[in-house]
Amino acid sequence: MIQTYNISKSYRSGRGKVQALYDVSISIPGGTTLAIVGKSGSGKTTLLNCIGGLELPDRGSVNCFGVEINTLSRKELSYFQRRNMGFVFQFGNLLSYLTVFENISFPLVLNNMEKEKRVAELLDKVGLPEIISAMPYELSGGETQRIAFARAIAHSPKMLLADEPTANLDTETGEKLIKYMFNVCKEEGCAIIIATHDQSLIKLADRTLTLLDGKVTGE
């Protein structure tokens, strides 16, 4: 179970103080898929980051699988993230100096897990077994996102957080990727929280959460 209790988060920017999240409380049972929707600037990415521990809320708390992650030390948070979470970013964010194999095996090494078999298996699952030695700059947008997804689930995390994973892909490739993600996660028993403004993806999720100006306006 993933729960947030009244989390608020604000930023200072050139335009002054921006309230990104305001008293957001949500509850996501393990193994379910949640789509966070909303316009650009509604706080989707910030909510995803707070849940994943990529940033800490100013107020409130985040409980993931029984652990209050905002109370963990940096080291404890790192260990928690490497074991339980996987991230897919908007631009893939593959490590540019590492090959596809090295990228996917990175979380496996962090978790002392077997690499070769698992990487081959994941590349098969995402339909790209032939690019194991390619460098990230050699991949197309769709390939990059599929490899980023393979890397995110390589260590069989309990939760996958995906921030606009289809934003830079054409509709067809995007839909394909999302279907891959949902199918593979179902196989692996992994919960998915996906931030998107792509209405076509919403129907694939078990639940949908709508954000507007940092507040939950619909579920």
Binding site: R74, S78, Q81, M85, S96, Y97, F106
Partner: peptide, 17 residues
């Protein structure tokens, strides 16, 4: 290379690592 370190951080590398 700070981007690379940021990505690794999101994957859970510790301060010592």
């Amino acid at each position: 290379n700070i981007r690379e370190y940021g990505i690794m951080k999101a994957m859970g590398i510790t301060p010592m690592e």
